[in-house]
Design a binder for these strands. Structure first.
Lengths: 336, 336
DNA sequence: TTGTAGGCGTTATCAC
DNA sequence: GTGATAACGCCTACAA
């Protein structure tokens, strides 16, 4: 079933059918009604390959999401989708694995889907470094700052991981904690892990405290299991920490379990602070203190920046979205 | 940059370029090397729109995933992806929202992507009822049984939700529980909620116990928050249950919290059993008893059924994959 | 082994 | 307001 068939069926020419299907003017009400009826009856669907192949002017916006399991990205995507719904910008979403090169993928999809701009939900700075030049359309990277790259069509929206981690630790220091342990990802391969770690170190140093990058840090996956393994490892090293900073709320769940297994109380013996402020944290026992990732604000802002660049040719901006610390029950004053 | 440009650049004709790009035979090594070098240098990428539009024979397999937030589906997708990697079947994945019609979408994508077959990860039987006829390629529905529909090209792989819920409740009855409460989705709109509920009722009835579909059931979302709200509601109704069946592990997390808020111990005062056996359950305090969804087995089996239908014209099959109950700490004998 | 040309389903530019 | 018709980029007979 093609528009040719529809044309034959209704007695009009393909051009008229196409005009109806695309809501173009200069079509009689009669023709429109007849063709729409035939479409309805036959369940006809436009072939997007042919459409995209032919269509000359770009109209759509592209979102490239790296890591489909990431719940924060999923939330942001939802915001973008609802914001764009009903506008004149169709949305294309593409899901990528961590290993794939998101910038190359973007380049191909921009051409194929006639995209006006791209939002990268997550991304690796190295890929932008090597492949972003001459992308041709405005883009926004969400999560990392792309300021250092200096591309004039690449904006970025992020939270200041460095400052967030620092403030989190400062708050715990203010509660009297002196001995910290940290669980996170690989500081070499994970930008955010490195930045958060640096924030921790900065806060410690500023307070005249010390933390050992080898002994007080556990490198694990961002999962409950990772949190469990990491905490067990830290505990076995016998470092006697009273505060545990996990780089994700998921890790904190595993940390809770490991501490329980060692008969350590939260926050009585160990204060635990997570990261992301996932909704699940509110229901844990004890309720989890966490660094809030303002997903909605980040999503909204990135879309604004992109549309501003598309519609008004606005220049690239790099913005840190304000974060907040959410204090709940898993942190407290250190025991005397 | 098109294959025309490549042809001009290398001095060969577009036909030769196309043959190289598609690994067709009858191309001299010299030509292949020259063209591949040019491709590498220019970073050329085939336009998939044009390719798919033109390509006559189908090669790919389509996976339609409903509800991108669903962690079980994400796991199954991973199994399918790795299984298919390196085979002659490219994989197309499409993510859909709950409200969209997955069968219509499949119909369009089959045509556009030249798919040989489809795996539906989740799906609504009503949509299959109304739109599946004459889909044209073999398909497998994962999660629900499609046996009642009787389409000869639609297989299904599922776990017997009915039996699983029944066995879960039977096990708790064997521990001495008599008063049950259940938290799940809307039994009208959610097939699995209805089937699980029916399993619960069956077990209760068989044991000579009663359960009230109004008073002992809370309809909520499949989330920690839903579990919390549902448990609070049940508690406020003052039904004095000693066993709580939640239709998802996520709900169980919220249930734990609500019980704690009422100074009720798990499993001392109330035994809690979840569903899905997510990895997080292992780390909860107490560790969560749950109905295991054999995601890997389901994914493997669905792919086998599909490939068997594609390659050997095998007829549609409907298979229940065996589930297991994983007993951990959140369930126990009822207090005397 | 290589080149040529028709056509996939659609949009857009012409005439009418 | 409507109908032809030339592309879009590619694959694939078929011819050379």
């Amino acid at each position: 079933m093609t528009i040719k068939d529809l044309a034959a069926k209704t007695g009009y020419a393909v051009g008229t059918v196409s005009r109806v299907l695309n809501n173009h003017p200069n079509v009689s009400e009669k023709a429109r009604a007849a063709i729409l009826a035939a479409v309805e009856e036959s369940g006809f669907q436009l072939n997007q390959n042919a459409k995209q192949l032919k269509q000359s002017h770009a109209t759509s916006i592209l979102v490239i999401l790296k890591g489909s399991g990431n719940i924060l990205f999923a939330e942001m995507l939802e915001v973008i989708q609802t914001s764009l719904h009903g506008t004149r910008y169709p949305l294309h979403v593409d899901y990528l694995h961590g290993a794939d090169n998101e910038v190359r993928r973007a380049r191909q999809l921009i051409r194929e889907k006639n995209a006006l701009g791209v939002i990268f939900l997550g991304g690796n700075l190295e890929n932008f470094q090597s492949d972003f030049a001459d992308l041709g359309v405005p883009a926004v990277l969400v999560t990392n700052s792309a300021e250092s790259l200096g591309f004039d069509n690449l904006s970025s929206v992020y939270i200041d991981d460095h400052a967030a981690a620092r403030q989190a630790v400062e708050a715990l220091i203010a509660m009297g904690h002196k001995n910290f342990a940290v669980i996170g990802g690989h500081r070499l391969y994970s930008d955010i892990s490195r930045m958060r770690w640096e924030g921790v170190v900065e806060a410690m140093t500023a307070a005249g405290l010390t933390i050992d990058p080898e002994l007080d840090y556990a490198t694990v996956y961002f999962s409950p299991d990772g949190g469990y393994q990491g905490t067990m490892e830290l505990l076995q090293r016998d470092r006697h920490f009273t505060a545990l900073f996990t780089m994700s709320d998921l890790m904190a769940i595993g940390a809770f379990r490991a501490l329980e297994d060692h008969n350590l109380e939260v926050p009585g013996d160990v204060s635990v602070i997570g990261y992301d402020n996932l909704s699940v944290g509110e229901f844990l026992i004890p309720r989890l203190t966490s660094v809030d990732q303002p997903t909605e604000a980040m999503a909204r802002r990135s879309l604004q920046l992109l549309l501003d660049a598309i519609e008004n040719g606005a220049t690239a901006k790099h913005e840190a979205v304000p974060f907040t610390l959410v204090f709940r029950e898993s942190t407290g004053k250190v025991k005397e």
